[in-house]
């Protein structure tokens, strides 16, 4: 079984900066972390590997320094890593990102399962997983919290919905996007850490993927960010202090005036 996990390096939410001219993210100087949901995806893949014999390839599309994220994941026990990096990939929307990722997965070949995080905590769209699946023409399930292979060609997944849970059966190859409940990400091991340090990580650009510069990155994107701004801060903050009765009375009145349904 060959599993591909897609991971994304994201800026630590605590400090984010947007280039006012290009409206693109400025990552330099901001600490990068691996998208937390992608660590769940890696964990899910490793659990499958623990239980059977799977090979796991982790891929990311990003700037050269995204290699760091790949090594970090290698140190947790993933077998191989692949960096998709090219100036032409810059500024991709989810479509262009998915075009690139799916081209790489197609080139890797013989992939049985693709795992993604539920969403990336920066772009926050949750679109890349489903779009990659669509471009690869394979079935997918989102927001999965549990999964188990049924037989060689089928997978059973439990997914979290707004209303409860659903159990789906998918034929493989398939793509799954996972949530926290798939399992607490394990820490690195020393052996894997040593291996990760030395591992050769191939870098593929448009040439290796056989893509045209116009199909990827900003050029290949359908959506365009025209304005980025900070959300208006709350300026009307009320602090309620005083005796317990006063506080209860004040809050009750506050919510009543705001016409909160149910109060």
């Amino acid at each position: 079984m060959h599993i591909v996990v897609c991971i994304k390096q994201v800026p630590d939410t605590k400090n984010v900066r947007i280039d006012p001219d290009t409206h693109t993210l400025v990552r330099q100087g901001v600490e990068s972390i691996i998208n937390p949901f992608d660590l769940f995806a890696v964990e899910a893949a490793l659990q499958i590997k623990d239980a059977s014999s799977a090979t796991i390839t982790v891929i990311t599309m990003g700037p050269p320094q995204a290699e760091e994220a790949l090594r970090e994941v290698l140190s947790r026990g993933v077998d191989a890593a692949l960096l998709l990096s090219d100036r032409a990939f810059a500024g991709a929307d989810t479509w262009a990102t998915s075009v690139t990722l799916s081209a790489a997965i197609r080139k890797l070949g013989n992939v049985d399962l693709i795992l993604c995080g539920k969403q990336a905590v920066d772009g926050d769209t949750a679109q890349v997983g489903p779009e990659v699946a669509t471009l690869l023409d394979i079935p997918y399930a989102t927001f999965v919290k549990k999964m188990e292979p049924l037989d060689a060609q089928h997978l059973k997944v439990t997914r979290q919905t707004d209303e409860g849970t659903e159990v789906w059966k998918l034929s493989t190859p398939a793509l799954i996007t996972v949530i926290k409940e798939v399992g607490e990400p394990r820490l690195p091991s020393l052996r894997h850490k040593m291996r990760a340090k030395k591992a050769a990580i191939p870098v593929w650009g448009i040439a290796e993927l056989g893509l045209d510069a116009n199909d990827v990155g900003l050029c290949g994107s359908f959506t365009q960010v025209v304005r980025v701004f900070s959300p208006p801060r709350r300026t009307d903050r009320v602090i309620i202090e005083g005796s317990l009765e006063e506080q209860v009375e004040q809050l009750y009145r506050y919510l009543k005036e705001a016409k909160v349904p149910g109060i």
């Binding site: 820490l187 690195p188 091991s189 020393l190 850490k193 040593m194 340090k197």
Partner: peptide
């Protein structure tokens, strides 16, 4: 390098 890795990992 390996000793530093041990430190890093244990610290984590």
């Amino acid at each position: 390098e390996e000793q530093q890795m041990i430190q890093e990992l244990a610290a984590q």
